[in-house]
């Protein structure tokens, strides 16, 4: 009897792999290709997903991704609905006041996407026009900073790009890998949109994993994982797969 039970336990632990590894639930607004998005098989995939899975293997945690709308993603973290946010969150001073951040795992700038025939080289050229961005993103903050532009906030970046494509707005500001995905690689948009400029006035931004203030256990695990991924050069492989710079 005793032997049977211990055999069962052994078998179970072999089957489930590292069954004792901590599970970390990451919230993600999976509408941000190529960083994190839902593929045609309705799985959450992307650069950040692969990155966190690699980090999990290195540091011994199992990442689980939960799709959450961007609009309420920070409120959910504060309300303990999940352990962390892995959703291309740029580390900003305002956000640091409300949550903790892991060490950076990616570097971005803000890019301006415009129609192919547009002559706009920067946001300054779009004064008196309408420029869209996703609500409460650093891209939207950048648009709002410029006087004379009518800022338009969308729930999803894809809707802003569609409105630009349809001609209701004259530009969209978002993180450069996302801009490149839509303007250079997307079949529908690449022939009519282009990247106007990488906004120089804005500083370099870093993506971090947002974690509830004070949750040092999760923070340390995630940091350990990111460090290991960088040290082993795994991030280069993931970068090649999704972004291919």
């Amino acid at each position: 009897m005793y032997r049977a039970i211990s055999l069962m336990v052994l078998a179970m632990s072999l089957l489930t792999g590292n069954a004792w590894a901590k599970t970390i639930v990451f919230a993600t607004d999976a509408t941000w290709p190529p960083m994190e998005f839902v593929d045609e098989n309705r799985r959450v995939v992307g650069f950040a997903v692969d990155y966190m899975e690699a980090a999990g293997r290195e540091a011994g945690f199992t990442p689980v991704f939960k799709v959450v709308a961007w609009d309420g993603i920070f409120a959910g973290l504060a309300a303990d609905k999940y352990d962390a946010i892995c959703s291309s969150v740029s580390i900003t001073e305002e956000r640091r006041k409300a949550m903790d951040f892991s060490i950076p795992y990616f570097e971005v700038r803000q890019a301006l996407v415009v129609n192919r025939d547009s002559s706009a080289d920067g946001l300054e050229d779009l004064k008196g026009k309408r420029v869209g961005a996703q609500i409460a993103t650093t891209g939207y903050f950048a648009v709002r900073k410029v006087d004379g532009i009518e800022p338009r906030s969308y729930d999803e970046i894809g809707l802003a790009i569609e409105d630009l494509y349809n001609g209701r707005i004259d530009g969209v500001v978002c993180d450069d890998p996302v801009a490149a995905q839509y303007a250079l690689r997307n079949k529908k948009y690449r022939d009519s949109l282009k990247i106007g400029t990488i906004i120089e006035s804005g500083d370099v931004e870093y993506y971090g994993i947002a974690i509830k203030k004070g949750d040092t256990e999760t923070l340390n695990l995630v940091n350990e994982g990111i460090k290991a991924v960088k040290a082993k050069g795994l991030d280069k492989e993931i970068l090649n797969k999704w972004i291919g710079r």
């Binding site: 504060a78 869209g132 409460a136 906030s153 802003a160």
Partner: peptide, 18 residues
């Protein structure tokens, strides 16, 4: 529809200020 109505003004404020 990205119309800046009462609710969207609030959502923008909430999402920025937490």
């Amino acid at each position: 529809l990205a119309v800046s109505d009462l609710l969207r003004r609030g959502r923008e404020f909430a999402a920025e200020s937490f």
